[in-house]
């Protein structure tokens, strides 16, 4: 039993954090919803993302990837969440993993890994799962994407304009007609184990992204509580505020344990067990992330309700991430079926 990141993973976390901070600083959310920049990085920033290899690390080597483990990928995902990065990194990683699982041609995967083509994952209309058909499907984290591929058909679809979405750091776009630019391929459906593993992979990345966001919200709330003075004392010296932040810390730490287990399980356990773990972790972190981000806003007080303060971005990302690939109610219904439904 070794339940911590390796030295290499900690170094990777640091380098991911640095680039994520650069990307975050480059995005301008403006003075309000009326002049917010779309979540697409400029050319130079995107080149850095591609050159750093973020898009390629998870893919198998024959597909132009680095064959990194899911724990490594969640280290990256957590940093994306921590800095609420408004660049479609996670979307591309998910789309690529999904295509790889469905036997997409190596050339297409290499193109994605090298940044030559930007794809987004297609979710079903209620955002709960990866889409099986194009009708009603929505591409998620799709800013700047050329298309979204429905793996079951092997057909790439063009994307419409972004829909209104609570989380401005990620774009949701409807699928349109088949895209001429990307040739269709003949998919091979993953077997049951591989399909469950793919779902567990996607959930684990979302969970890590949420974990990063809740950690960032808590860190900022603590910092604010240390410095903001009322009644002649930092508000962080008041027990009511301390209790709120302590409860948030417990949720973050428990969420971290869940995220670690979920990520580890994808590579270590059979698909069915990994999916079960990923559902538990996503359910727990979905609920906790919203709670922690709400508490952070409470600690910020009025400033937390302004567009200028980042607190609402964390809460927006937490709510959107909670619903994407299924919220706690969705996953708990599967757990109920598994654990105590009468067969």
């Amino acid at each position: 039993m070794v339940i911590e990141l390796t030295a290499e993973q900690r170094a990777f976390r640091e380098s991911c954090g640095k680039l994520a901070a650069v990307l975050a600083a480059q995005w301008n959310r403006g003075r309000g919803p009326h002049d917010i920049a779309p979540p697409v990085p400029d050319k130079a920033s995107w080149s850095r993302v591609v050159d750093t290899g973020w898009l390629a690390i998870g893919l198998r080597e024959e597909n132009g990837g680095a064959g990194a483990g899911v724990v490594d990928l969640t280290v990256l995902a957590e940093q994306l969440g921590h800095h609420t990065v408004a660049a479609p990194v996670l979307g591309i990683i998910l789309a690529a993993e999904q295509l790889q699982a469905w036997g997409a041609p190596s050339g297409l995967l290499q193109d994605i890994a090298e940044g030559g083509i930007r794809l987004a994952p297609a979710l079903d209309a209620n955002l709960r799962g990866l889409a099986c058909a194009a009708v009603g499907a929505l591409a998620w984290d799709a800013a700047g994407a050329e298309a979204a591929v429905i793996p079951a058909s092997g057909v790439a679809h063009s994307l419409g304009d972004p829909l209104p979405f609570a989380d401005p750091t990620r774009a949701v776009r409807p699928l349109g007609a088949p895209s001429a630019g990307i040739p269709a391929f003949a998919p091979t459906a993953p077997d049951g184990d591989a399909a469950a593993r793919l779902d567990a992979f996607a959930l684990s990345l979302l969970t890590a992204d949420l974990l990063g966001t809740m950690q960032a919200a808590l860190d900022a709330a603590i910092e604010h509580a240390r410095t903001r003075a009322q009644f002649g004392a930092p508000i962080g010296s008041f027990q009511a505020v301390q209790q709120l932040l302590a409860d948030s810390h417990v949720l973050v730490e428990a969420g971290r344990s869940a995220s670690y287990y979920s990520a580890w399980a994808v590579d270590a356990l059979p698909g069915r067990e990994a999916l079960r773990a990923a559902r538990v972790a996503k359910a727990f972190v979905s609920r906790s992330a919203v709670e922690v981000c709400e508490s952070a806003i409470q600690v910020f007080g009025g400033i937390g309700m302004t567009w200028e303060a980042p607190a609402h971005i964390w809460l927006r990302r937490a709510h959107a991430g909670r619903l994407v690939l299924g919220d706690e109610h969705h996953h708990q219904s599967f757990i109920a079926d598994d654990d105590f439904s009468r067969s």
């Binding site: 344990s257 670690y260 359910a283 996953h331």
Partner: peptide, 19 residues
């Protein structure tokens, strides 16, 4: 629904204690 939520919490606590 509540039992499933409790199931999630107990499982997460077990992982957390292991960590």
């Amino acid at each position: 629904r509540r039992l499933a939520e409790a199931t999630v919490e107990v499982q997460v606590m077990q992982w957390h204690v292991a960590r």
